[in-house]
Nucleic acid binder design. Structure first.
Length: 926
RNA sequence: GCCCAGGUGGCGGAAUUGGUAGACGCAGCAGACUCAAAAUCUGCCGUUCGCAAGAUCGUGCUGGUUCGAUUCCAGUCCUGGGCACCA
């Protein structure tokens, strides 16, 4: 009997489906385990071999945990709202709902072929009304909450209203509050809500009449059409994630993420400690507030810089400078965020004509504006200290502003020195102090004089939460007299209405604004923007726990049972966005008492990227002739990407290439040996068919580079089990590595070899029920130990290699014994479930191998009486000696000195020292 | 510029705590079986020297610590990823 993987895999997939083998219950006596993948966006291109890497890893781990006796939740779903579907609709007129449905069907069929253990009954789709109903509900919970700065947690906005009504606040009394108009009250509340609306700048393209994402703006013009893009203030929705900045930082201490991942999140949050300081402006009542982390350098301030958008710019600019400033502002407006960020080297700015006064020595400090100061960070104004900050230094040099040196010899006059270790000079009351000590002295003085205070700042901003788009969750909000009125939760879902046109609405609003019937409701107008892609993905891990609940987004009993995601697997590209948002949502839901944990993911594993290995052919300039890699330098050639699927290793399938594209049908090839291959004659080299060798390069896997490999093709050719094991065998899950189909043969051979331990091609069944020998048990238990350890630490590549070693050893030992083999099958189940189940049933077992008990390692089979020690002389390996395991130092020394090889190296001298590490090695020092 | 990862045979990679560098697989070479091919099996497979035994060098580079370094430390180069005028 042969290993007919196609038949076997088909048959068992059907049986598992019929028997609901992957059904997961919320009601189990077993301990729970939750393994989650970052769910995919169902793109039109389908899966390539890079996608399933993480899915296979998590599937192996889930199946392993199941065998170890856990009730495992391992769900899958689709992040199905998003821009690409809408863009596609704009181009083709096909409705996103329809293309999304088709794409999901493709994804599911591709995933199913690989044999994942998903309980599809728990599938979620973020674009499904039965799902986004709850996204809208959670939005309302955010809308109806505020962050209490005393308790450092979210609380219902009703609590805040009650407080305002009875006690007032720092800014108004209870009486004043009660006398405010409804609109005034709502505006105050809006400034506290966790989901709030405010004016913010967007990339506005007048020609397209729409708002663009940063991605869609290239070099200051729109990607589509190349029209100019300017910044425009528009009403937007935001999530107040900054309120959670400290808790998001603290929470990192409690989770098992990689250090680099934590570091990225810390950098994104960007907490810094410093001070806000007020500077008087010469001849004006206005005060200028700056934020600085280095108040110790205050005597070294040689100029001030405001962001061009700063509110003081208009009022402090002098008449003489007005024209120059206006020109500069015009220039800044023409520049996109991208450009302002990209061109770091270019120094621009303009003097306002105004002077600020140093609060300590009264020195007049010129006030400039420059685009390198960002309006959104700190106070949008800085005090510039050229001797201590490189950007300030370059700016001063460029505009010939005199530089004050406050750090003596630490400043060399040629570049800034940001040290904190220098002794201060030219610094009034700070003179003679070490800079790092002077920081708090300076702040204390500033606070004492009432001109500033300590301040903690964050780089992170509140997260923009609205998009002027169609394919997203509608906001359950109606605007009435300028007030945002939420829908009642019972009115949800607010379904996304059908549209026929996907173009923007009037005034830059989203496509929904075109639907008058939908927008205009009694007494108000619906919010026409929709939620961004990350809305649905911020909480989906909760919905899997209780996917069909119609009373709540997730029953408390279900979330108490499944609790945190034990292992979360996904790529680093979501390091900051998605992970921070879902961590924030979790904290809010925890604060409000809906769930019992405030970090969603206990452990995070980042899978690496699978890169494409591109292949090139070399076309001779101006001809339809291609020259093989080794000869290409003799001609002037252009490299052309060629589809990797018609190249075997690096050898081109010439006939397939001619059929690949019509323009190549008549192509002529100069092969590696110099012979010609033409469409008529074919190729006849000296020794048969001559080869055309391709060039290769590692690049990102993408359709346009013709280096994508479809898993379907490999599953069809080698089977799902081979494919799964090969993806793992490629290297560590965390590492990025290029895909090379060539090696898959080796894994396939391994599975066939395993098969032959049970069945012989001629004799049929060869497995038997004889008693296993100690040597065979040793092979087994060595494998159990290694494979269990490797699986536990996500080292799947070494586990696969251990399987190979084990099967090689069993084959060498001609061990066909059920006692051994059935244990191997259980070990193999997470990796290659189909073949494991088939052979398991051939062995005459009744139940499924999916629920077998994981073999228990017994160390007694591995006990050795002697050990083969490496013996080094002066650290260089010279020989080996077999010694009893319980041997003592003294005896070792005696035996080692007697050894012939050691004798030779000793040359009659006595060793200085003999190092003996029990169980490891021996080193003779001469 | 800053931060993070990484650099080991022709290739993917292994070496879990400082202790035999190159497991396992691919590719390659030689052989067995076969009329032949496929499949399968056996042997070889980092460098240089050598018939061999063996020696020599060898984990990006330069140093250091150590009886012993792919592993730890300092410096440096390169590659990949992320962030980016953050005061």
């Amino acid at each position: 009997m042969e290993y007919d993987f196609r038949e076997i895999e088909k048959q068992w997939q059907e049986k598992w489906k019929a028997g609901k083998a992957y059904k997961v219950s919320n009601d189990s006596a077993k301990p729970k385990y939750y393994v989650l993948d970052m769910f995919p966006y169902p793109s039109g291109a389908g899966l390539h071999v890079g996608h399933p890497l993480g899915y296979i890893a998590s599937d192996i781990y889930s199946r392993y945990k199941r065998l170890k006796g856990f009730n495992v939740l391992h769900p899958m779903g689709f992040d199905s709202f998003g821009l690409p579907a809408e863009q596609y609709a704009l181009e083709t007129g096909q409705h996103p709902a329809e293309t999304t449905r088709i794409n999901i069907a493709t994804f599911k069929s591709q995933l199913d072929k690989i044999g994942f253990c998903y309980d599809w009954d728990r599938e979620v789709r973020t674009s499904d009304p039965s799902y986004y109903r709850w996204t809208q509900t959670l939005f309302l919970k955010l809308f109806n909450s505020y962050f209490c700065n005393t308790q450092k947690k979210a609380r219902p906005i009703a609590d805040l209203i009650k407080k305002y009504e009875t006690k007032g606040s720092r800014h108004f009394t209870a009486e004043q509050w009660n006398a405010f108009s409804k609109k005034e009250q709502e505006d105050i509340l809006m400034s506290r809500r966790l989901a709030f609306s405010a004016y913010g700048e967007v990339n506005w393209c007048e020609a397209l009449g729409t708002v663009l994402a940063n991605d869609e703006v290239v070099n200051g013009v729109s990607e589509r059409g190349g029209f100019p893009v300017v910044k425009k203030k528009m009403r937007q929705w935001y999530l107040r994630i900054t309120a959670y900045a400290d808790r998001l930082l603290e929470g990192l201490e409690t989770v098992d993420f990689s250090e680099s991942m934590k570091e990225m999140q810390r950098n994104w949050i960007g907490r810094s400690e410093g001070a806000e300081v007020e500077f008087a402006i010469d001849g004006s009542e206005k005060k200028l507030r700056v934020y600085t982390t280095r108040p110790d350098t205050i005597f070294g301030v040689d100029f001030m810089v405001l962001a061009p958008e700063h509110e003081l710019v208009a009022s402090i600019t002098t008449a003489e400078q007005k024209q120059a400033i206006d020109e500069y502002l015009g220039y800044v407006k023409s520049r996109s965020d991208r450009e302002r960020m990209a061109e770091v080297k270019q120094i621009t700015g303009c003097f306002t004509g105004a002077y600020a006064l140093n609060p300590f020595d009264g020195k007049k400090i010129p006030v400039w504006i420059a685009e390198y100061v960002l309006a959104g960070y700190g106070t949008g104004a800085i005090m510039a200290v050229p001797c201590g900050d490189q950007r300030d230094y370059s700016f001063a040099k460029h505009f010939n502003i005199p530089i004050t040196n406050i750090i003596g010899s630490h400043y060399n006059g040629e570049e800034a020195n940001p040290t904190k270790e220098a002794i201060l000079e030219n610094s009034g009351f700070l003179n003679g102090m070490l800079m790092k000590d002077a920081i708090s002295v300076a702040v204390n003085k500033i606070e004492e004089l009432g001109i500033g205070k300590r301040k903690v700042n964050y780089k992170m901003r509140d997260a923009g939460f609205s998009r002027q788009r169609y394919w997203g969750e509608p906001f359950p909000i109606t605007w009435k007299d300028g007030i945002a009125v939420p829908l009642d939760e019972s009115e949800l879902p607010l379904e996304l209405p059908h549209v026929d046109k996907y173009g923007p609405g009037p005034e830059g609003e989203g496509p929904l604004a075109n639907l008058n019937d939908w927008v205009n409701v009694e007494g108000g107008r619906r919010e026409t923007s929709t939620m961004p892609g990350y809305a649905g993905s911020s909480w989906y891990f909760l919905r899997y726990m209780d996917p069909h609940n119609e009373q709540s987004f997730c029953d408390r009993k279900a979330s108490d049972y499944w609790n945190q995601v034990d292992v979360y697997i996904g790529g680093t590209e979501h390091a900051v966005g998605h992970l921070l948002y879902s961590r924030m949502w979790t904290k809010v839901l925890f604060d409000l008492g809906y769930i019992s944990f405030d970090e969603p993911f206990k452990r995070l594993v980042n899978q690496g990227m699978i890169q494409g290995s591109s292949r090139f052919v070399y076309r001779i300039k101006g001809k339809n002739e291609f020259v093989s890699l080794g000869l290409k330098n003799k001609y002037e050639t252009d490299p052309l990407h060629v589809d990797v699927n018609i190249v075997d290793g690096i050898e081109l399938n010439i006939n397939a290439f001619r059929k690949w594209k019509p323009e190549f049908s008549e192509a002529i090839f100069i092969c590696e040996d110099g012979s010609l291959n033409t469409p008529i004659s074919g190729g006849r080299g000296a020794g048969g068919e001559a080869k055309y060798i391709c060039g290769s390069e590692v690049e990102k896997m993408s359709k346009s580079k013709y280096n994508t490999v479809n898993p379907d093709v490999l599953v069809e050719k080698y089977g799902a089990d081979t494919f799964r094991m090969y993806e793992m065998f490629l290297g560590p899950v965390e590492a990025s590595k290029p895909w090379d189909t060539k090696g898959i043969e080796g894994v396939h051979r391994f599975l066939r070899k395993l098969w032959r331990l049970f069945n012989d091609e001629l004799k049929g069944k060869i497995w038997n029920e004889e008693k296993a020998t100690d040597a065979e048990l040793k092979i087994l238990h060595k494998a159990i130990k290694k494979i269990e350890e490797d699986t536990e630490r996500f080292s799947f590549n070494t586990a696969v290699s251990s399987f190979m070693i084990c099967v090689n050893e069993l084959a060498d030992a001609k061990c066909f014994k059920k006692e051994i083999l059935e244990k191997i099958l259980i070990l193999l189940t997470p990796y290659a479930p189909h073949i494991a189940e088939e052979l398991w049933s051939q062995l005459g077992n009744n139940g499924s191998v999916l629920d077998a008990a994981y073999p228990v390692f017994d160390g007694k089979y591995l006990v050795e009486t002697s050990k083969d020690y490496p013996v080094s002389v002066n650290g260089k390996l010279r020989t080996n000696m077999s010694l009893p395991v319980d041997i003592q130092q003294q005896e070792v020394e005696k035996l080692v000195v007697e050894n012939d090889v050691v004798q030779k190296w000793l040359e009659g001298k006595a060793p200085k020292k003999i190092i003996f590490v029990k169980g490891k090695m021996i080193n003779v020092v001469i």
